[in-house]
Write a protein that binds this DNA or RNA. Structure first.
Lengths: 144, 144
DNA sequence: GTGAATTCATTGGGCATCCCAACGGTAATG
DNA sequence: CATTACCGTTGGGATGCCCAATGAATTCAC
């Protein structure tokens, strides 16, 4: 019989956690040169993708806590990467949009993040990387 | 060109993070019925594996912060799962050992954690699960 | 040997992520 | 028109991870 610790450390949840943790660190270090945290980067990308969008809607799509969404958008707005305008159709909502500066920093972060992920997956060949991505994609979709 | 968010959400680091997050939640919920948190479970398993072991040594092997190690062992000791005895050979150290109750709860948690992981990987067939584990194992080893 | 450097367990603070709860303001529901 | 729901925001709390410091104990270097 395997020992308890060996057992834990061969669990998929444990392995995925380790790999994810390393990936987080790599990407975080990479985009830190642009002055963005992981959450801010994800939120900025979400704003760029979903055009004018309310904060709550954005939070739902990205699984970001409303509290943290406020903080992230505050930072992004102060940096000049996004704008919060009142939504004329629904005065409860903020219509959040990207600025040209936001688009520019996103493009730079995209390269940085891709390089970090290349390092994360360096131990696998391209074909294996595709298989891994397919597996993770299916697991993610199943869990959503 | 892909939009920024599609880009982020197809990054391995993002997908791995999502899957890992779900796995954490599933396992945490599973072993919560035994009154253990994830960290406490891991520490308990580590104590069981490495026999009488000093806290610092355990923390190094499990990559657990000394601060959190104190808290986890306090809880485990209060629950009667581990014992802290002074090490006669080095009076700075605590010789931490598992109790029979600790062994028993570990056995129950092993089943619970395995069931949770089965749910996490339910979208993949056994062969795909093995491949995924092999990939994650290689990535983990490469990162260590 | 004796003094300096290291290790041990513990405590503390800080930062980031996540959960639950509330508030005033606004919109949809009946 | 009253209840119900949602919006952005603020607050508190739990957890995980990093850096630092403490007093006690051990090891190392000279």
């Amino acid at each position: 019989m395997t020992t308890p610790l060996q057992h834990i450390q061969t669990l998929p949840s444990w392995l995925a956690g380790r790999v994810a943790s390393r990936g987080r660190g790599l990407v975080a270090d990479a985009i830190a040169v642009e002055g963005l945290k992981l959450l801010q980067h994800a939120v900025l990308a979400g704003v760029a993708e979903y055009g004018p969008v309310a904060q709550a809607e954005l939070g739902r799509r990205l699984a970001v806590d409303p509290k943290d969404m406020v903080g992230a958008l505050n930072h992004l707005q102060r940096a000049g990467y996004v704008l919060r305008s009142p939504d004329p159709a629904d005065r409860r909502k903020n219509a959040v949009t990207v600025t040209p500066e936001g688009v520019a920093v996103l493009a730079r972060c995209a390269e940085l993040a891709e390089a970090a992920n290349a390092e994360l997956l360096a131990a696998l060949n391209p074909d294996e990387q595709r298989q891994l991505m397919a597996f993770l994609g299916r697991l993610h979709q199943a869990g959503a």
